[in-house]
């Protein structure tokens, strides 16, 4: 059964149409990669699925884990098991990562009718996930993303994913800004957190490098607001060799 089913999704930011009839289906247990030229609408897709205000859906439907995703508020989507790894993680001065995540997790748990985690339980969980991503616990005591390097921010996103333990993770250019070693650590992190029969991942990326560690089952090309081509892992390699021009032309998509 599909965990996420997007049908004919269109949206607009203000009066600018970005997604133009995008369809995509993801089953539990699968890893999908989306690639595509700058400005194609990849981040817009992620934000729209997350329910970001201002990203108005103008057509189509999205079903997530049996629910009408578009009916839900952003925090309800999170509680339903949707996680966004941000292309540009946001800073929240004065709020420690631990406080932020504990409140977030307990809010989610409450929404799902689960008991809140105690302070001790939470710290153990945070330690384990930070360890998995080789992020110093001291970093988690600092304010959310404030003064973090680009790569640290991305690793922090993955620690958050580990703690929140979503069903579906949409990771927007999580590989950008990572050094070679960090890329490997993050790749392993994604695998160990998300490669489970009841979970799925949608990786948004420009390069093959992350896919070397997190092997996708499917690769899609998003151009001009639609999926213009889908294939197996070999499609990513082909794109890396040849770029987007010929596919975008062949599929008749134009921006």
């Amino acid at each position: 059964m599909s965990l996420l089913n997007i049908e004919n999704l269109s949206n607009a930011i203000g009066d600018k149409a970005i997604l133009k009839g995008l369809s995509l289906s993801i089953n539990a247990g699968e890893i999908h990669a989306i690639m595509g030229p700058n400005g194609a609408g990849k981040s817009t897709l992620a934000y729209t699925l997350g329910g970001r205000p201002g990203y108005d859906v103008t057509g189509g439907s999205v079903e997530f884990d049996g629910k009408d995703l578009l009916e839900l508020e952003p925090h309800e989507r999170a509680a339903a098991g949707l996680f966004l790894g941000f292309q540009y993680p946001v800073e929240i001065p004065g709020v420690s990562n631990l406080q932020f995540l504990r409140e977030s997790l307990n809010n989610q748990r409450k929404a799902r009718g689960q008991e809140a985690l105690s302070g001790g339980e939470f710290i153990r969980l945070a330690k384990e996930k930070a360890g998995l991503l080789s992020l110093d616990m001291e970093m988690l005591k600092r304010p959310v993303n404030v003064g973090f390097s680009g790569g640290e921010k991305k690793r922090n996103e993955m620690v958050q994913m580990g703690i929140l333990d979503p069903k579906l993770a949409i990771l927007d250019e999580t590989d950008s800004g990572l050094d070679i070693d960090a890329l490997r650590v993050v790749g392993h992190g994604i695998n160990s957190i998300m490669r489970k029969p009841d979970k799925a991942v949608l990786l948004i990326t420009h390069y093959q490098r992350l896919l070397d560690y997190v092997q996708p089952d499917f690769v899609h090309v998003l151009a001009a607001g639609r999926i213009v081509k889908s294939g197996g892992p070999e499609l990513a390699l082909e794109l890396e060799r040849e770029g987007y021009a010929h596919i975008v032309e062949a599929e008749g998509a134009s921006a």
């Binding site: 934000y47 508020e73 925090h75 999170a78 001065p93 709020v95 932020f100 809010n107 958050q160 929140l164």
Partner: peptide, 21 residues
């Protein structure tokens, strides 16, 4: 949006950000 995406409802998100401030 970042805070809400992590699971905080709007009022909790505002409260958290304000307390940080």
């Amino acid at each position: 949006f970042y805070a809400m995406q992590r699971g905080l409802d709007q009022e909790s998100a505002v409260a958290l950000i304000v307390n940080g401030f």
